[in-house]
Design a protein around this nucleic acid. Structure first.
Lengths: 160, 160
DNA sequence: GAGATCCTGTTATAATGTAACAACGAGAGC
DNA sequence: GCTCTCGTTGTTACATTATAACAGGATCTC
């Protein structure tokens, strides 16, 4: 898995591929990728950063896809619970998933200057954390890993 | 470092030691552990679980130590920024630190049934996450690691 | 066409977090 | 003593994030 998000890439293609993947996954699993849900995924993909629910809601509102908070939260819940997007707890915001379909334990690199978010792979089994949990008798179901720091683009600016 | 939080221990002593440590640290570093701040730390220690800012505020209010949100948030900010407590992002809540003074990268085990929170040591720097970040040119400053699952006490109940 | 299920629309409100400003108190320097 | 500064406190007002609850619609099944 690559860490994208800080590198240039063919954005339009990246969005189209992700949407197509989501459609496939949904029809394969009997899920409904309704217009609002698909549009929210598209919004997240097109920005390639973490977005708040209300920020998304405003876009939906302008497009006539809904005007009240539950509209955004429902779509986001759907996307998150089926692995098409993730919530970044540190930011109370949401990002599109980089590799939907694969069973994943994502980790995020969050730039504290520009707010960009890169998704990367979590530590597999996470030796120490997993061991500690096992020793304590704790069963891990989900892990949130979020690193805050400086992205390559902002490192220079911050030095000033 | 031990994972405490799921095991029985001498609670009164545990609180007193932690408060004493905090006092020492503060006087050694020219920080003011004011009544409100100390009381908030004590509250967090006595509950040994993650508590919301408003939950803490209500206790302070009953004790005449303050009635408005900023009172709680300021005390919590102080405790967090000086390492006496941590914020659990996943819960939007706060816990007392298990080993203040030591420079730490904490990780949390959060039980999704009973809400108890155990603090443990984070993965060492040579983890996969560190490598990935370095490769991407990202400088990590802080890491949030929060695992959700079942604590030993709740494992049996959840099986039902 | 009755019931089940999932999705949508809407109202209302809960929960979490901050900006901004006035006032207070302790210590430093004169 | 005086006053300047700095960190802390008290307070008002507000911003942001999130959810409960319920009515209506679409679709599918039997």
């Amino acid at each position: 898995m690559d860490t994208i998000g800080f590198a240039k890439h063919d954005h339009a293609a990246c969005i189209q591929t992700a949407i197509a993947t989501a459609r496939d996954q949904c029809s394969a699993n009997g899920l409904q990728l309704t217009p609002a849900r698909e549009r929210v995924l598209e919004i997240l993909l097109s920005e390639h950063r973490a977005m708040g629910a209300y920020e998304i809601l405003e876009i939906l509102r302008n497009e006539g896809l809904g005007s009240q908070p539950p509209v955004a939260y429902r779509a986001l819940d759907f996307l998150v619970s089926h692995g098409f997007a993730h919530k970044v707890e540190k930011l109370n915001a949401f990002v599109a998933c980089n590799h939907p379909g694969q069973d994943h334990a994502p980790a995020f690199l969050i730039c504290r200057i520009c707010g960009s978010v890169a998704e990367t792979a979590a530590v597999p089994k996470d030796s120490l954390l997993g061991d500690t949990a096992r020793a304590a008798g704790f069963v891990i179901e989900k892990v949130v890993i979020e690193a805050e720091g400086l992205c390559p683009n902002c490192r220079g600016k911050a030095a000033a």
